[in-house]
Design a binder for these strands. Structure first.
Length: 435
RNA sequence: GGCCCUAUCGUCUAAUGGUUAGGACGCCGGCUUUUCAAGCCGUUAAUCCGGGUUCGAUUCCCGGUAGGGUCACCA
């Protein structure tokens, strides 16, 4: 059994895309599951469109996602012109290729065409089974602009061979490229890799996912405060399932569970809502300390005294957390709060005198609790019988507003425990004074 | 248009010859200690169509339809 070698060969002509990320992930998962490795290659033969910036973005994206690669073993096609030249010469000599006049731009220019044997090519795809093409339709396709300017198909075949690639796992948009590549590889006398064409990620209208459908670059999701492990988890579930009902996976669990047999044949629509849910699930598994640390990493600012447990419960991403904080959702944690006095009885079935009386009564009850006992549990135990007696809405609404200053907030027991006995009593007294 | 691929709830999917066609997200409704959020419970919702094979088809075969991919001197 030879070692499994897969490859991830992006061309640095754009930012790291969700679709590329999933292809990389599947290649990595497949290799890692089999104890093999995934090798990275930049397909940068198109000098016009390549940018270093894109190359860096792809590398950064892989690192962020936690997909390992050997930085010292990256193949760059732009540095391998000699190798391709040799292969082109070989094909020329063996009669598998010939020089022909260019059909476009200047008439003096020559290109190198592959001599198509016009056969039927059949290959076995791990996901789709047998796929068969009549290559006659392909004509004598161009494999290089010149002896030292190879084109995609030639370079792919040569590199996959030299890199020892055993499994070519790529998007289904490459299915129709496969017969061309098999033709070249046979002319060169190489063995075939095993192919697996994975379904595409689709937009809600089932067309190919593109910029007009919103965020498509990996970095945008990082900026929105998604956890890389959640992002990976969601991507893995697009077109693949473990055959069990498990949906939340760690990276390790994915490696263990991943098999190419369970990859789907058809495209999958990208659903942001589900990804948000998965992200929230991963966020929940973080300890408060870990959450705070990673939030700081994301936002660049400290959570300070803010109640992590509450934030964790309310925000599906770090971006949402930042938004909540910015909107004053946790302002009750600050020293002082301000609000319109009318809010104290706005939603309550009570009037000012009654509300004032309730607040005073609650303050008295809380006086009896020591600082030690000032937990949301104890506070509730003390206040609840009274609230039930007097009408929960009538007691609890004014109390909650007195503590939070807001129409919507966490419940008063939690807030009281968070801000402590002293501030709680201060705020209740102040509110009673306003009524 | 040629070639190729695909087809289960709105979405992600399970079930490959026999199930009340299961789960998850979302939606909607309810419950919980007022509000919001979370949580819990529940409801709604699907086998593209037509033939065939079979005692029996979501499942196998054929045809249709629909969607997608690809047809570069891009990758």
């Amino acid at each position: 059994m030879t070692k499994v070698v897969t490859r991830f060969p992006p061309s640095p002509t754009g930012y790291f895309h969700i679709g590329s990320a999933r292809t990389a992930l599947f290649n990595y998962l497949f290799a890692a599951h089999a104890g093999g490795e995934m090798r990275l290659r930049f397909e940068d033969t198109d000098k016009e469109r390549n940018k270093d910036e894109f190359e860096q973005d792809i590398l950064d994206g892989l690192t962020w996602l936690g997909i390992p690669y050997d930085a010292k073993a990256i193949t760059k096609q732009s540095e391998r012109t000699d190798v391709y030249s040799d292969c082109i010469q070989t094909l020329l000599k063996s009669g598998h290729a010939y020089e022909a006049e260019a059909t476009t731009d200047n008439p003096d220019k020559k290109v190198i065409r592959f001599k198509n044997p016009n056969t039927r090519v059949t290959f076995t795809d791990l996901i789709r089974g047998e796929v068969s093409f009549d290559t006659t339709d392909l004509k004598d396709f161009v494999i290089a602009k010149s002896v030292d300017a190879p084109l995609y198909h030639l370079a792919v075949v040569v590199d996959d061979h030299e890199m020892g690639v055993t499994h070519v796992i790529r998007g289904e948009d490459h299915i129709s490229n496969t017969p061309r590549q098999i033709l070249i590889l046979e002319a060169l006398g190489y063995g075939r890799p095993i192919y697996a064409h994975i379904p595409l990620i689709l937009a809600p209208d089932r067309s190919k996912l593109s910029k007009r459908h919103g965020a498509v670059s990996v970095n945008e999701y990082r900026l929105q405060g998604f956890l890389p492990e959640a992002f990976v988890n969601y991507l893995a579930l697009l077109g693949w399932n473990p055959g069990t009902e498990q949906e939340i996976f760690t990276f390790k669990e994915l490696i263990k569970a991943f098999t190419i047999e369970r990859v789907h044949k058809h495209g999958a629509v990208f659903d942001l809502e589900k990804m948000l849910w998965i992200n929230h699930e991963h966020l929940r598994t973080l300890s408060d300390d870990e959450y705070a640390r990673r939030y700081q990493e994301f936002a660049g600012t400290d959570l300070g005294e803010l109640p992590v447990a509450l934030i964790k419960e309310r925000a599906r991403t770090f971006g949402e957390a930042a938004e909540l904080i910015k909107n004053g959702e946790f302002q009750f944690m600050s020293q002082d709060i301000s609000y319109e006095p009318a809010l104290l009885i706005k939603g309550a079935k009570t009037d000012a005198p009654a509300a004032k009386q309730h607040l005073t009564a609650v303050a008295k009850l809380l006086e009896g609790l020591s600082g030690e006992q000032f937990t949301s549990e104890e506070i509730k135990n003390v206040i609840f019988p009274y609230a039930t007696e007097e009408g929960r809405g009538a007691v609890l609404w004014p109390l909650r507003v007195a503590l939070s200053g807001r129409e919507k907030s966490p419940d008063p027991f939690v807030i009281a425990s968070l801000i402590g006995k002293e501030r709680t009593l201060q705020r209740i007294t102040k509110a009673a004074g306003l009524l």
